[in-house]
C-alpha cells in the first residue's frame, strides 16, 4: 500500500513538472531545457515572499505562483521572442544558456544554503493515514490534488476555451494561425507563462515538503524523460509517462538499490527512444524535429 502511495506521489510530481515541457513544445516546438531552473526560481520566489511579508501561507504560495507566471512571460518577451524564425536548435541552446544563468543568479540572490520556506511560513506537514494503511504527508496529498486540478484545467482550457483552441492551432501551423488573425507572440507568451506557472507550483510544493536548494533543477531535468516518454506534444502522454517512470523508480529503489533513483528515468527514456522515438502518444510526423 505504502508503495502505491509513493508511486502516486512521485508520478504526480513528475506529471506536474512535465506538463510545462509539453505546453511549450506543443505550441512553439521549442524544448525548454531551462524548465527545471525556472521551477526552482518559482520556489525561491516563495522564499522571498515568505520572508518579506506576513501573508498567510496559502496567499504567499498564490502570490509566488502568480509572480512565476510573470517570470515565464518575461522570458518569452525578452529572450525567446527574438528567436522566432530561427532554427529550433538555436532556441533550445538558448534555453540551456538561460538555465545556467538562472542557476548562477539563484546562488547570487538567495545563496546556496538550503532554505525551508515551510518553517518561515509556519506551515505544519502532518502525515495522514489513508484507509488502506498507507501514509501520506499533507503536502504530498496537496501535490497530488494540485496535479489533478492542473491537468483537468489544462485539458478543459485547450479543448473548450477560445485561447486554448488558438494555442493548438498555432502549434499545428503557426503561419496559418497568424493569417487567421492570431497574434503568435501573445500565444507564445501565454504558453511560457502557463508552463512556468505549473512548474513553479510543483517546485513550491516540493520546497515546502522537503526544503529547497539548487539541486531542485535536477528534479526538473528528471521530469524531461517523462515528457519524452509520453510523446512531447501530448498531455495524456506525460500523465502516462509519469506513471511509468515513477513506478519503475519506486519499485527499483525498494527492491534493488536506492542509488538507481537518478538513473531510472533516463534508462526508460533510452528504451522508449529506441523502440518508439516519437513517444507513446506523440505525433509521428514530428520526428524530424527532435
Amino acid at each position: 500500500m505504502q508503495l502505491a502511495v509513493n508511486i502516486v506521489v512521485l508520478a504526480a510530481t513528475y506529471a506536474l513538472i512535465a506538463c510545462g515541457y509539453v505546453l511549450i513544445y506543443r505550441v512553439s516546438r521549442v524544448l525548454n531545457l531551462a524548465h527545471g531552473e525556472l521551477m526552482m526560481v518559482g520556489a525561491y520566489l516563495l522564499v522571498t515572499v515568505a520572508s518579506a511579508s506576513a501573508l498567510p501561507p496559502l496567499l504567499a504560495v498564490g502570490l509566488a505562483a502568480a509572480l512565476s507566471l510573470g517570470v515565464g512571460v518575461l522570458v518569452h518577451l525578452f529572450l525567446m521572442r527574438r528567436l522566432t524564425g530561427q532554427p529550433a536548435l538555436a532556441a533550445v541552446l538558448t534555453t540551456i544558456g538561460l538555465g545556467i544563468l538562472l542557476r548562477g543568479l539563484v546562488v547570487l540572490l538567495w545563496s546556496a544554503e538550503q532554505q525551508h520556506p515551510a518553517q518561515s511560513l509556519g506551515l505544519a506537514n502532518p502525515p495522514i493515514t489513508l484507509f488502506g494503511g498507507g501514509r501520506i504527508s499533507t503536502l504530498s496529498l496537496a501535490l497530488v490534488l494540485t496535479t489533478g486540478a492542473v491537468y483537468g484545467g489544462l485539458f478543459a482550457f485547450l479543448r473548450f476555451s477560445r485561447w486554448g483552441i488558438r494555442m493548438r492551432a498555432a502549434g499545428q501551423n503557426p503561419l496559418l494561425a497568424a493569417q487567421r488573425g492570431i497574434n503568435l507572440n501573445g500565444i507564445y507568451a501565454v504558453a511560457w507563462g502557463l508552463s512556468t506557472f505549473t512548474g513553479s507550483v510543483a517546485g513550491i510544493l516540493i520546497a515546502l515538503d522537503s526544503g529547497l536548494d539548487t539541486t531542485m533543477a535536477t528534479i526538473g531535468l528528471k521530469a524531461f524523460p517523462v515528457a519524452l516518454v509520453g510523446g512531447l506534444d501530448s498531455l495524456l502522454g506525460s500523465l502516462l509517462g509519469a506513471l511509468i517512470v515513477a513506478t519503475a523508480e519506486v519499485v527499483l529503489i525498494q527492491y534493488v538499490d536506492p542509488l538507481l533513483s537518478d538513473v531510472v528515468p533516463f534508462l526508460i527514456l533510452m528504451a522508449v527512444l529506441l523502440a518508439r522515438p516519437w513517444g507513446l502518444f506523440g505525433s509521428r510526423e514530428e520526428l524530424d524535429r527532435v
Partner: peptide, 12 residues
C-alpha cells in the same frame, strides 16, 4: 488546422 474540428477551425 487538420487536428481541429470544423467548429474549432472557425473558433480559432
Amino acid at each position: 488546422f487538420p487536428n481541429l474540428t470544423v467548429a474549432e477551425n472557425l473558433a480559432a
